[in-house]
């Protein structure tokens, strides 16, 4: 299995605060890696650095051996990393289908003149995009069927909006999918369903790096777990290894509790 993503000593600070401090880890092909950690431990900042929203102060980020550190978000996306957001960021007034079509922007190439003249080439591309988008939406059986594809995104239920965001991220068939708390705010039944869908994605060959607080989900899908605290990686390994790591217990429950369990 080849390495898809590799972080080498990535640091990112805001003013005096080191949000991420020489973080290194890697994600291998067709693997699901979860990042856990208390609030403010630098997980989302790590995501933002990987996806190009922030430039790292130092360190490098390699996607299949190629540096993507300091690239703009759209360039990072072009290289093959797509993401979802913790606070949903859909194009709320656009239709469900259009949301997915926007996700395909970087893998399609109809130009200005061709689009204006609606050349046969463009029509073909557009038709193919729609077929593909429907296929992706069908990965969530029954959720986006029929007329619902034409509804505006804001009219969807909360859980469906989360699903749509994943669908949009999948539209470009990324080499690496970043999911920022995919089951946040869902009830247990819904989160179990999303968990199953994440497993389906792995079976389809996707590589996933995700942030998650719901330990059932983390336990259920992760091949590996990385624990962070104060911007530093404090543990890495299988779910059981990490969950029993005294440092991790300390980070979540405090020092006294950690001593008690040890």
């Amino acid at each position: 299995m080849g390495t898809i993503l590799e972080l080498q000593g990535v640091s990112m600070s805001f003013g005096g605060l080191k949000a991420v401090d020489s973080l290194s880890f890697d994600v291998r092909e067709n693997e699901i890696v979860s990042i856990i950690g208390p609030n403010g431990s630098g997980k989302t900042t790590t995501f933002n650095v990987i996806s190009g929203l922030y430039e790292p102060d130092s360190g490098d980020i390699l996607l299949k051996g190629e540096s993507v550190a300091g690239l703009r978000p759209d360039q990072v996306h072009d290289k093959g990393i797509s993401r979802t957001f913790q606070s949903l960021r859909l194009f709320s007034n656009m239709s469900v289908l259009d949301n997915v079509l926007v996700g395909m922007h970087s893998v399609t190439d109809a130009g200005l003149i061709a689009s204006m003249l609606r050349l046969p080439k463009v029509r073909r591309e557009e038709a193919a995009m729609r077929v593909k988008a429907r296929e992706i939406l069908e990965m969530f059986p029954g959720r986006f069927s029929g007329p619902r594809q034409q509804q505006p995104a804001f009219s969807l239920s909360y859980a469906n909006r989360r699903r749509l965001e994943i669908a949009r991220a999948l539209a470009s068939e990324p080499a690496l999918l970043l999911l920022d708390e995919p089951v946040a705010g869902m009830n247990p039944m819904e989160s179990r369903e999303v968990m199953e869908q994440i497993k389906v994605l792995r079976d389809k060959g996707y590589t996933i790096l995700m942030i998650e607080h719901d330990m059932h989900v983390v336990e259920g899908v992760s091949d590996r777990v990385i624990a962070m605290d104060h911007g530093v990686k404090i543990a890495e390994g299988t779910y059981t290894e990490v969950a029993n790591d005294p440092q991790v217990v300390e980070a979540y429950l405090g020092k006294r509790a950690a001593e008690a369990t040890a």
Partner: peptide, 28 residues
Amino acid sequence: NLKNSRIGRAWNALREDELAAVSAGITA
């Protein structure tokens, strides 16, 4: 024609949420 094309959608996406649009691969 342009409005209903890939480029028109990109414009609308930028208007709706620029951060999400660039993260979805649109060069703002």
